[in-house]
């Protein structure tokens, strides 16, 4: 009878342990509360399990991130690519965030995880003492009142690939405005070409020579660093829609109608083909900046203004022109 009692206790203790361990540790992890566990799911499955986080200036918050379905990413708006995290299904990745300025921060998914990937973002609302988050300067299209939705299509494009190297040989013959930063921002490559073509002092140069000059000017406005950063950002964020080559054939956009003026603003459309030089050579950096900051107004393109820093956007623009230049055969 004594053995029977021991046996019963063994069963009871083992069963209680089996119940207690998961329940207890679940309760403990709840009670601690210092860290926030966020489950990432495709927007169809509910998106971020927590999409509004409250934080205090200077007080670290510990995030434990995991995914319940596919690979997602986590990044704060305007953060460097180096700080982006990948969230693999069933695995945990941790990060600690500290905020200096009170205000509203955006966090978003950096991996194209499904058709509604763009909806995967949330807010971190930081309260407390301090200067507000430094804002970006006004977008160029607002500063200069540019209609970024006006149709543009280059009438003139180079007949063969322009060369930076050849263009640099004419650098001492150029008028001052040609190498001005503001000219670069506000003029399309085609616009600058037309302007230089009409310069009497350059009338001895061939059309191709002028294109070489434009290419050289575009090149000197940006560092090579910016171009490779632009490439990485484009691949990570844009290629699902715009295609890896920029042709407008990303997995997300396949099967969408081609955009023309009859269906503008009427729903999802296919992104333009950046490998067609007529498209980008007629657009100024200001127009591209505006389009990226504002987003597609119904075309399905998100507004990147709150997600990417101005420098990141300029890197992407820089890279886009490279696509156009290198598509000229």
């Amino acid at each position: 009878m004594k053995k029977e009692r021991i046996a019963r206790w063994i069963v009871i203790i083992l069963v209680l342990t089996a119940i207690g361990v998961p329940l207890g540790s679940w309760w403990l992890s709840r009670a601690q509360g210092t860290q926030i566990e966020i489950h990432a799911r495709m927007p169809e499955n509910g998106g971020w399990s927590i999409d509004t986080i409250q934080a205090k200036v200077g007080q670290p918050i510990h995030l434990r991130l995991t995914s319940d379905d596919v690979v997602h990413g986590f990044a704060l708006g305007k953060s460097d690519m180096e700080s982006w995290l990948s969230i693999f299904p069933g695995e945990y990745v941790e990060t600690t965030l500290v905020f200096e300025h009170p205000g509203k921060y955006i966090f978003y998914c950096t991996r194209w995880c499904g058709l509604n990937h763009w909806r995967m973002h949330g807010e971190i609302i930081v309260t407390g003492e301090g200067d507000p988050i430094p804002g970006d300067s006004l977008p160029l299209f607002l500063q200069y009142n540019i209609d970024i939705d006006a149709p543009h299509y280059a009438e003139n494009i180079p007949s063969s690939p322009p060369s930076v190297e050849r263009g640099s040989r004419f650098s001492d013959r150029l008028p001052n405005y040609a190498i001005d930063k503001q000219t670069y921002f506000l003029t399309s490559p085609e616009g600058l070409w037309l302007k230089l073509r009409s310069e009497p002092s350059l009338s001895d140069l061939s059309d191709m020579d002028i294109w070489d000059i434009v290419r050289w000017i575009w090149d000197r406005q940006n560092s090579s660093n910016s171009q490779s950063l632009g490439f990485k950002l484009f691949m990570a964020l844009a290629s699902a829609a715009h295609g890896e080559s920029g042709r407008g054939d990303g997995v997300m956009a396949r099967g969408l109608p081609v955009m023309d003026h009859s269906n503008m603003g009427s729903g999802l459309v296919r992104p333009p083909d950046f490998t067609d030089p007529h498209v980008l050579l007629s657009a100024s950096p200001a127009i591209l900046e505006g389009k990226i900051i504002r987003g597609g107004m119904g075309t399905g393109m998100p507004s990147w203004g709150s997600i990417l820093s101005r420098d990141q956007i300029h890197s992407i623009i820089d890279y886009l022109y490279t696509i156009a230049w290198e598509s000229i055969k």
């Binding site: 083992l14 342990t17 998961p22």
Partner: peptide, 9 residues
């Protein structure tokens, strides 16, 4: 007893 606890766990 162990498999029972394992089953419940």
């Amino acid at each position: 007893a162990i498999t029972l606890a394992g089953f419940i766990f």
